[in-house]
Simulated scan of single mutants.
Amino acid sequence: MEKLKKILISYAVPIAFSILCVSGVLVAQIPPIFLASEIVRRLSRNTFLVLSLIIPIIGGLGLNFGIVLGAMAGQAALFFVVDWKIKGLVGILVACLMASAMSIVLGWLAGLTLNRAKGREMITSMILGFFANGIYQLIFLFFIGSLIPFGTKQFLLPEGVGLRNTVDLYGTVASALNNVWMVRIGTVRVFVLPLLIVVGLCLFITFLFKTKLGQDIRAVGQDMHIAEVAGINVNKVRIIAIIMSTVLAAIGQVIYLQDIGTINTYNSHEQIGLFSIAALLVGGATTRKATIWNAILGVVLFHTLFVVAPSAGNKLFGQPQVGEFFREFLAYAVIAFALAMHGWRAKKILM
């Protein structure tokens, strides 16, 4: 009985979401083929971003809301790829390289900041995201077309300064990864290359934690003081963990946006951190422990609910908008629940 209670407490969030998902599917009466198609596509689109959160969690930095910095770098790179009219896989590769270069600098600055806020990394990374968003808005609303040249005039505001609200990727890099290798299983389309890239990242993360650097990251996450006594440069390892997370988030945003096909210039990045963290927590991760399977399960459960919520809201209340509000509420609620559980467990350990 005690063992069952422990399992229920440990997996409370994924169990609750599994029940919600099954209930939502039954109420919404969504065709299974359509649901399967949506989940497979969202697995290839969103999983890379969710996986980018794992390294900082294991490194003891908690939930890295700062992946939004990487998302901004990914979008910035895509804007220039569109302007330079670089198409297909070459455009994706150039965007990833540019975004990675920007993310290394942003991750380094974020790491330096988080090292000065030990024990308060999550709220600090969230505020960093808000601060960086202000700079991002300034650059792409006032500097593009004036201080920074941008040749594609149809994406500029009528005054010739600042990007429009929407930048279209069709004709350049939209679906560039998706179109390389697509398999049809009945009416379900499976985009193989993005899924293979996700598998590659899973293998990289697994390999990383078998290396000296990975063991150092794990040791720092378990106890900074003991790691320092053992001769590990704690601050350096934490900065490396944040840089890796930011770079992966930038690449993940490029993968995400090539699938969407358009960039909402001033909003596409804003919810990336929130929804990626919510998905990871839904999969059973905590602020101190996360695995690849937590990320995959979380994406499946969280996005199943995303697909069925509007239809379920429409069936129950006659208003699909109720489902939209419910999705937003759940994203915040699961983060609040996970943080409350973390605080409760920490208190139990101290007692």
Rank of each mutant, 00 (worst) to 15 (best):
P320D: 06
I67P: 09
G111Y: 00
D259R: 11
E2Y: 10
F204I: 12
N233S: 13
Y332S: 10
M102E: 05
I15S: 00
N133M: 08
K236E: 11
M182W: 03
S100H: 03
N46K: 08
A331R: 09
A230L: 12
R288H: 13
I263E: 01
T166P: 00
T246S: 07
G134K: 00
V234L: 08
G151Q: 12
G24S: 13
G60L: 03
S18L: 15
V82W: 01
G231P: 07
K118A: 06
T291P: 01
K5W: 11
L193M: 13
T152K: 13
A295I: 04
G273P: 00
L147W: 11
V22R: 04
Y332G: 14
F65C: 02
N233D: 15
Y332W: 12
S125H: 05
F130V: 15
T246V: 15
L201C: 01
V307M: 05
W84F: 14
T291M: 02
F65T: 04
V105C: 11
F155M: 07
I144L: 10
Q271R: 11
G91W: 02
R116F: 05
K3R: 13
A174V: 12
F326L: 15
I263W: 05
L297I: 15
V40H: 04
A219V: 10
L257G: 01
M126V: 12
I57T: 12
V90M: 10
Y170I: 09
V27A: 10
V161N: 06
F317T: 15
A250N: 04
L8C: 07
I139Y: 04
L147R: 09
D259Y: 13
T246D: 05
I148G: 06
P32C: 00
I7M: 11
G70I: 08
T124H: 06
D259L: 07
K212D: 12
K210D: 10
V68Y: 04
V180I: 15
R164M: 12
R218E: 14
A249Q: 08
A73C: 14
I292W: 00
L78G: 03
S175I: 05
V247S: 02
S100W: 03
G318S: 03
S52F: 09
Q137N: 14
I240M: 11
G221A: 06
Q29A: 14
G91S: 02
E38K: 14
R42H: 11
T286F: 00
G59Y: 00
L208S: 07
I185H: 06
A249E: 09
K3G: 09
I135H: 08
E2V: 13
L163D: 02
G88Y: 00
F337T: 15
L297A: 14
L157M: 14
V27K: 11
K5H: 12
A16K: 03
S268D: 15
I104F: 01
Q137S: 12
S37P: 03
P14Q: 04
G59I: 09
I239M: 10
N46S: 09
A333S: 13
L112W: 09
P56G: 06
P56K: 04
M122C: 02
N294A: 00
K3L: 13
Q253T: 14
M102T: 07
